[in-house]
Amino acid sequence: MSAYLVACRYALLALAKNRLAAVLLVAFIPMWITVAKTLTTPETFPFRLRATGTWLRAGGDEITMISGSLNAVSLLVGFLMFSAARRTRAFDRRLTAAGYPRTALVGAKLTALLAASLLVSAYATAWMLLFWSPLQPLLLGVAVLADCLVYGAMGMCLALFLPGEVEGLVTIIMVSIIDLAPQNPVASTTADKALVELLPSYGSLQTSLAAGFTRQATLSPLLTHSMVWLTVMTVTALAAFALRNRTHQPSARPHDDG
């Protein structure tokens, strides 16, 4: 337990030292939500909630604010976890080579992912509540948290394969754009296509829309889509981490009796 607590302390410190992420958290998320709410038309749009098949009507500004919030938190948490995992990569190798338990390091990384996701999702949800009163605010927060976890795990995964922070940031930006742009019912005509169910933020966006404009507790998109993405990204990242930080035991040579 002590090894896990020490590893957690260093993992959380690595997150806290990322000044760019702190600036983005304080400034980027409020700015994005404010712009989406104030500059998008409040005209009511009909759209079909694909997860339930129900037709809903909602203001374009509110729909865009939800989509923009998910875009903002996915970029922030994805980059934050990518940067932290990349900066501690060499240190992790030295620790495991010295005999530090890998299970403690893995547990610390999962704890850091959860802590970062909780902080960012709570902050983004609070800002949305300043502009808008969704019918199910708690469910909205859960949906935003799920998106943070998915992209945080994705950032950890990318950190093991991409060489630098620029490559990681660009990749996360492009994935987030390709992910959320086709799903916005206001801006895209493809939001009701079957292929959107394969995108990482599908579960979070569908649940967020349900939380905002219905009283139905729609959890199936999170359980059947977000959980799959989170599991795949997390298992891939942790498996790659374990393989790259294997400790090689010297083979015992047979004694020469002669």
Rank of each mutant, 00 (worst) to 15 (best):
S226G: 02
H248M: 09
T231K: 02
I178C: 13
P185M: 03
T207P: 04
R244Y: 00
T224R: 13
L169I: 13
G212Y: 01
T214G: 11
P185N: 08
M227A: 15
S188D: 07
Q183M: 15
Q249S: 04
L222Q: 08
T190P: 04
L198G: 14
L209M: 11
W229R: 04
N245Y: 12
A240E: 10
S220C: 07
Y202S: 03
T224C: 08
L238T: 13
I173L: 14
S220W: 15
L199D: 07
A194L: 14
A211G: 02
L219D: 01
P182W: 06
A242M: 13
Y202P: 05
P200N: 08
T218G: 00
A181F: 03
A237K: 08
L199S: 04
V166M: 09
L199M: 11
M174S: 10
H225M: 07
V235D: 00
S220V: 13
L222N: 06
Q206I: 05
V175M: 14
R215D: 10
A240K: 11
A242R: 13
T234Q: 01
N184K: 04
L198A: 15
R246M: 12
A194D: 10
S226H: 09
T234D: 02
Q206A: 12
T190L: 15
V232P: 04
R246V: 04
I177R: 10
V228C: 11
V175D: 03
M227Y: 11
I172Q: 05
M174E: 07
V235R: 00
S208Y: 02
R215W: 08
V235K: 01
L169M: 12
K193L: 13
P221S: 02
N184D: 15
Y202T: 08
I178R: 06
I173F: 04
A191M: 07
N245A: 05
A210F: 01
A239V: 14
G203R: 05
S201K: 06
T224V: 07
V166Q: 09
T231H: 01
L180N: 12
E167R: 09
Y202M: 03
G203Q: 07
E197T: 15
S176I: 00
P221T: 00
T234P: 01
T190M: 14
V235M: 05
V235Q: 00
N184H: 08
T231V: 13
T247Q: 14
T231R: 03
V235F: 00
L230P: 05
L199K: 05
R246I: 09
A240R: 12
T218S: 13
A239M: 11
P200G: 09
L238E: 01
N184S: 09
L223G: 01
T214D: 10
S208L: 09
R244E: 06
A191R: 08
R215Y: 07
P185W: 04
A217H: 08
L180H: 11
R215H: 13
P200K: 03
A242Q: 13
A210I: 03
G203A: 12
T236H: 06
P221Q: 02
V196A: 00
T218M: 09
P200L: 09
L180M: 13
L199N: 02
H248N: 04
A210T: 01
E167K: 09
V235W: 01
L238A: 12
Q216P: 00
Q183G: 06
T247Y: 14
L205M: 07
Y202K: 01
G168D: 05
T234I: 11
